[in-house]
């Protein structure tokens, strides 16, 4: 079961420059664990001891996972995950 994960420019050093990679897992946590297997180093840029890093936003089909179930959010085959750094608006 492959889930599309869109990777921001700043993290593409870990994905060989790929904008989008496939990962497996039935929760966001499992997907990130799987990403780390194939793209070593990326996991540590996304997570710290407390969970998702403060300036990392992750969206499941455009919805911020912090307002779903965080790392426990269920993901399925039709889903797309987008990772973006937090930036200023206004």
């Amino acid at each position: 079961m492959a889930i599309e994960v869109r990777v921001p420019t700043i993290l593409r050093v870990y994905t060989g420059g790929q904008k989008s990679v496939n990962a497996e897992g039935d929760t966001l946590q499992a997907v990130i664990t799987n990403l780390e297997v194939n793209y070593p180093g990326i996991g540590g840029r996304l997570l710290d001891d407390s969970g998702l890093r403060r300036f990392v936003n992750v969206y499941l089909n455009d919805e911020d996972v912090r307002f779903l179930d965080g790392l426990n959010t269920s993901v399925g085959e039709q889903d797309a995950i987008t990772i973006l750094p937090a930036v200023a608006g206004g």
Binding site: P8, I10, R54, F55, V56, T82, L84, P85, V87, G90
Partner: peptide
Amino acid sequence: RYGEVVYGLRNIDEGFIP
């Protein structure tokens, strides 16, 4: 969600939350 240039930080720890 802007184009990529807007997210062109040097480091993910340079992100910003108001």
